[in-house]
């Protein structure tokens, strides 16, 4: 390996590490339900999209052309966050206990301004006075954009594994 190749490799590792740190820190904010701080990481022009997964014959990774769970912009995400501040947002009173596991982080493309990163997400969640627990499992395709203090999330597509959900609702962000 030439020195130039080693340097390029090192650059790629550092970039991946940087992206991974962003995702891990973001997961931490969501697990601690610091939703206002999370919203600070969201770009004004965010597209936050979770299509409905379909179960088709002989193909995998099929998602609906039209059907989705989330198709949010900044305003609708902010509304969702602010709704949880209401004392009537019963679904999260008390809050869901979550732990997010972010793995398989891979930078797929990047330029001066943005980094495209794939990751796998496993969310453990349990609720109420109960031993019962549940999981969401998904692949996420994100675009991170550089700003003065690090990255902001500019685009996220959440490819959920489930076609039929086993939770009461989706009252957390993925």
């Amino acid at each position: 390996m030439t020195l130039a190749e080693r340097e390029a490799e090192l650059e790629a590792m550092l970039l991946e590490r940087e992206a991974k740190h962003f995702l891990v820190r973001e997961a931490e904010l969501l697990d601690h339900r610091e939703l206002d701080a999370w919203l600070d990481l969201i770009a004004d022009d965010i597209s936050y999209y979770m299509p409905r997964r379909l179960m088709r014959e002989n193909t995998t990774n099929v998602f609906s052309d039209e059907g989705y769970y989330f198709d949010e912009d900044y305003g609708s995400l902010r509304a969702r966050v602010e709704r949880f501040d209401s004392e009537y947002a019963w679904a999260e009173r008390p809050p869901t206990r979550t732990e997010r596991y972010v793995t398989n982080v891979l930078v797929t493309d990047h330029d001066e301004e943005t980094v495209d990163v794939e990751s796998n997400l496993l969310v453990y969640l349990s609720r109420g006075d109960s031993e019962a627990h549940d999981f969401y499992s998904a692949k996420r395709l994100d675009t991170l954009r550089r700003r003065d203090d690090g990255f902001e999330l500019a685009d996220r597509t959440i490819l959920l594994n489930q076609t039929i959900l086993s939770t009461d609702n989706v009252s957390i962000f993925l």
């Binding site: 979770m50 947002a89 019963w90």
Partner: peptide, 13 residues
């Protein structure tokens, strides 16, 4: 639906 701002609060009830 499962992500709805209304419906999220119905199901646990």
């Amino acid at each position: 639906g499962p992500t709805g701002n209304f419906e999220q609060d119905d199901v646990p009830i």
